[in-house]
Design a protein around this nucleic acid. Structure first.
Lengths: 242, 242
DNA sequence: ACAAAAGTGTTCAACGTACACCCATGC
DNA sequence: GCATGGGTGTACGTTGAACACTTTTGT
């Protein structure tokens, strides 16, 4: 008879180990980034694994037999945030033999970027919270390692591709954008050069609207031209999707 | 009773599908690149799956329960080429539901770079051959897609990191190096600028030896300073290992 | 009027690109 | 001596980095 074991807040079918039974579990783990109050945040849930009691873990689940990997990620993101069509990208697969205490589980890590204000978290339902990425020390499983890899990936990737915009609302000031870059990359940037660089891409649409409720001269609000970007990204920025 | 099915020239344990049995197979597939006669080559084997009779496939195998993913890759590379300590890097995981005709198999693709002259292929043993990457049309499973992803990955990656050198012997002329880059990236380069760029890295060691048996002025042979590179790569070239 | 951030241009250094001639060897 | 590729330097354009003042709004 088969036994069920809890895997990262979900269920994985496990079988007694035998020479004939090469079962290896496959899961996905989603590193969902957000940005708020000048901090990069990641969405985590309390682990309910006994061996990782009170540790935080990424949002993950097993991949179902009839489900594509991307579908599994979409399902998890949808379940936890209420959002469809979220930007996501595969980052790396982690599979150390002992990474999961209940058996051999290989996990495919994905990175997602969402706007914190646009979600509908069911925080009451699970112990689901946004955490400052820079203040996370320990996590369940090897999730700290996965988070670090995704953070590093994000830092690298957003220097060549305008990914970071997905963390902002549809309308944003150049100040918002620069603060985002400065905080995620952890370096001060020159305002004039930053503006020049972004404008030179020709992908910012001036909405004509100004900020309001700021105690100083209001800045213009822009939108990102995703349509134009979609048609040009393979030229200027190499559309690397590996 | 469990049944065994051939998976990509090896064995995977499969079980009758039931609600309790969420078995998903996990394999690795190795894209082993070589370079010879000014062509980028990839090492392929004849598929012995009935549904892919006579198609070529990548070198792959299931990941064993007690084996790390990297170990599985090393094992496969060692088995097929006789080489230890080969350069390899994880590229991407492929897991479409129907990518394997015998069941759900998720595969983690790795890219390896070896020197064709330094291997000990057991070509008699299996139908194992080097193929011109640019002449491959159809392959078994989704292996063409995997190969394309790895080829693209290689092209992109070798523009920022001196990866290509792994495809050459320990001693090489700048001409060899330039032909390698020109052929893999499919673009002509200026000889003077190419030399300048490589020398400016400070990673080429002049062996003092000259080419022989060339019908023209012989060029100098160089070695790559892997030691120096190992200690500096996180500075100049960002040691991205995602 | 003052504080606070928006908005704007120029200069310089580094880097990549284009390009042409002499040199060493094998035949 | 001729063919073949080895080896070298300079000029130009582009790009990224450094840097300061005026403008607009809220208080």
């Amino acid at each position: 008879m088969k036994t069920k074991q809890v895997l990262n807040n979900s269920l994985i079918a496990k079988e007694p180990v035998s020479a004939d039974n090469f079962t290896v579990g496959v899961s996905v783990d989603c590193v969902i980034f957000g940005f708020e109050a000048c901090k990069l945040k990641v969405l985590l849930i309390k682990s309910d694994m006994p061996s990782y009691k009170d540790r935080w873990s990424l949002l993950g689940d097993i991949v179902k037999p009839g489900e594509d990997i991307d579908e599994a990620v979409s399902r998890i993101v949808k379940n936890r945030t209420g959002l469809n069509d979220v930007y996501m990208e595969q980052v790396r697969t982690f599979g150390k033999v002992n990474r999961h205490p209940e058996g051999r589980v290989i996990t495919i890590a994905y990175c997602s970027l969402i706007n914190i204000r646009h979600n509908e978290l069911k925080i009451y339902d699970n112990e689901l919270h946004w955490h400052d990425v820079n203040e996370i020390k320990e996590m369940a499983f090897d999730h700290k390692e996965i988070l670090d890899a995704c953070y590093y990936w994000l830092q690298y990737r957003m220097q060549e591709h305008p990914l970071g915009l997905r963390l902002l609302g549809t309308e944003f000031s150049l100040r918002d954008l620069q603060l985002l870059y400065e905080n995620i990359l952890d370096e001060k940037m020159d305002r004039r050069n930053f503006r020049k660089k972004f404008f030179s891409m020709g992908l910012l649409i001036d909405t004509g609207i100004l900020e309001s409720n700021v105690p100083h001269r209001p800045g213009k609000l822009y939108r990102f031209d995703y349509e134009k970007y979609g048609s040009m990204k393979r030229k200027k920025w190499l559309g690397i999707d590996f």
